[in-house]
């Protein structure tokens, strides 16, 4: 059974269509990555699924409940962590936990158990009396996750949970996500860190309000980029990019750090042609290598289309 099913979901703000006829399913217990640039419509979808926004048309169910008719039941079965840190900074760690546990209706014994669990999980045992505002960002995010999980939700929505968090804390946060998924919780996470997307079981790519691709990270990399991708190491990156983009045999080209990623129809012929055309312009080519496209290549490939 699916934890979430979305059918033809649409949300308009005046003339602007933020989410355009979106459909997808999320399996129970999986880590579902929702990817897209800022403003692509990720947060709007999450808000509709959590009952923070009404949909203009279409339908969806979360944990078997209809978002249009049973929002109250959904609220009891989901956890939500918004993009912006949203606990009370002027309350202590345990005051925040007590408050959120309380409004979710946990009885006192259950509440104490869950708070002990959340504090342990978030690594905040020594910080229970600390004001939340005084904690580093990574700690705050773990506390926010703890608050969202007190009532044992079946589905957790995490909207860019690791934004502005250092790499070590990010990794630690993802370890928590893996543990949750192992326990059978469905995790719906949005991110624009593509390395994080690799951790997901399923990825859905949204661009300008529309789903452009979906599948496991492996499927995305193999199904969408059918041509060989070459990594070119040369001098004058920007000049080379401009030259290559004018060649009709170059399918796609983009800059990756100090290297170029170029896709061509045929590995050997393409490699030879690249060397020739760059040499003509007095550019030294240090090396050309065929690579497995990364999710970033896929992302650029899919969202650069006119």
């Amino acid at each position: 059974m699916n934890a979430i099913t979305v059918k033809n979901l649409t949300r308009k703000f005046g003339d602007f269509t933020a989410v355009d006829n979106v459909s997808f399913d999320v399996k129970r217990g999986e880590i579902f990555g929702f990817l897209g640039a800022n403003g692509a419509g990720k947060t709007t979808v999450i808000k509709m699924l959590c009952g923070l926004l009404t949909s203009t048309s279409g339908n969806a169910t979360v944990a078997g409940y209809d978002i249009n008719t049973q929002p109250e039941s959904i609220k009891r079965t989901i956890g939500y962590m918004s993009q912006k840190f949203s606990l009370y900074e002027d309350l202590t760690v345990s005051e925040n936990l007590n408050f959120f546990g309380g409004v979710y209706g946990l009885n006192e014994r259950d509440l104490n158990d869950r708070i002990a669990w959340a504090v342990e999980m978030a690594g905040l045992t020594d910080k229970k009396g600390a004001l939340t505002g005084s904690l580093p960002v990574g700690w705050k995010q773990r506390l926010a996750l703890g608050c969202a999980l007190l009532h044992r939700p079946q589905v957790v929505f995490l909207d860019e949970p690791t934004g502005g968090v250092d790499p070590v804390s990010r990794r630690r946060f993802w370890d928590l996500i893996f543990t949750l998924a192992e326990e059978g919780v469905t995790v719906f996470v949005t991110t624009h860190y593509l390395d994080e997307a690799e951790y997901c079981n399923t990825i859905m790519l949204i661009h300008a309000g529309k789903i452009v691709a979906g599948g496991s990270p492996r499927q995305l990399k193999t199904e969408h980029i059918r041509y060989p991708m070459l990594e070119v190491n040369c001098t004058g990156i920007i000049e080379s990019l401009n030259i290559l983009q004018q060649q009709d045999w170059v399918i796609e080209s983009s800059v990756f750090g100090t290297l170029l990623h170029v896709s061509v129809e045929n590995e050997e012929a393409g490699s030879r042609k690249i060397k020739e055309v760059l040499s003509e312009h007095n550019i030294t080519v240090h090396g050309i290598e065929r690579i497995v496209p990364s999710l970033e290549d896929v992302f650029i490939h899919l969202t650069d289309k006119p």
Partner: peptide, 13 residues
């Protein structure tokens, strides 16, 4: 402004 309102609205309050 600080976003806690949204967090309240997703609870069963």
């Amino acid at each position: 402004e600080i976003g806690t309102y949204e967090q309240l609205v997703v609870t069963p309050i």
